[in-house]
Design a protein around this nucleic acid. Structure first.
Lengths: 156, 156
DNA sequence: TATAATGGTTACAAAAGTATAACTATTACT
DNA sequence: AGTAATAGTTATACTTTTGTAACCATTATA
């Protein structure tokens, strides 16, 4: 029975994807120099703290070369910094700068406004339903984003 | 107060986006010839029935030329058909074929399996929470997908 | 110490999405 | 009838994403 419910979640998440992606990519292109990929990297860094290049790739299921390109851009903009790992000199840790965190939050606020302008049309939903949905989504995200990185599969 | 709740939804939807997109695009590439864009077009057709090219663009907030390209591919595969509108000969209506509907459902099942394999890790959630979340997501989607097309903005 | 494995970069290629202008055909408007 | 607006296509250019192969540096292992 649980499987059926997860099915429904998966199906609905897929259907909402186009709306979601437009709401992210359009304002990004017009109002900043960050790509969606850059936003997702910063989102991971904000939620999980300092991460190595490989760990970022595992978080987002992206191949390592893509992470290198995205992070290079973010470094050019001053949003993240590289730090050598003192224990393993192969590892390069990435973390948000103050500027990165501030600008990230600001851009996300803009993105939320865009998405809100669409979600606001959902007048059929009750306030309590909106609250419950957001709480559940948050729980899902926290769970997903704290999955043990060792269980992921990129970076072979 | 409602605004704050919508904020939370927007924020969480954005964070879950990379997980979602990977779960869609990877199995599509390996197991079919349909692009994510094609899946979204078919999703719209399945939920809303026959749609004109412009209406599809409005549903997905995509410019018309992109719709033409996506629909052309779907026609080549035999998933959708063009039909002239008897009342307005400028309009070309698109609808799913039987093959399109069957294959679409089959592919979506595969996609759900991929996404499920990740969501299943969310053992922290109760069954009732999963059910509630899926119902709410469904309500949101139905609302979004039934927004009056006249309020959309593509195809000027 | 020799070999394998890991972390990261570079380079290249290809697929997909995005945007715009120009164009035809049809309909609506005055 | 003449003009504007709409529906759709074609063509083009660009950005982003995705994948892969080759490579170097470092660490782990046998």
């Amino acid at each position: 029975m649980t499987k059926l419910k997860v099915d429904i979640i998966a199906e609905n998440l897929m259907a909402i994807h186009p709306l979601l992606y437009k709401s992210i990519s359009k304002p990004l292109r017009t109002k900043s120099s960050i790509t969606p990929g850059g936003m997702f990297v910063m989102e991971s860094l904000k939620r999980r703290g300092m991460l190595s290049m490989s760990d970022i790739g595992k978080c987002l299921s992206m191949p390592k070369p893509h992470i290198t390109v995205i992070v290079d851009k973010l470094i050019d903009e001053g949003y993240v910094v590289r730090q050598n790992d003192p224990k393993d000199r192969r590892i390069i840790n990435i973390s948000l700068t103050d500027k990165g965190l501030i600008d990230f939050e600001e851009i996300k606020e803009t993105l939320s406004l865009t998405l809100k302008s669409k979600l606001v049309l959902l007048s059929g939903l009750q306030q309590e339903q909106l609250l419950t949905a957001s709480q559940l989504l948050r729980e899902i995200l926290i769970s997903v984003l704290t999955i043990d990185l060792e269980t992921s599969s990129h970076g072979k």
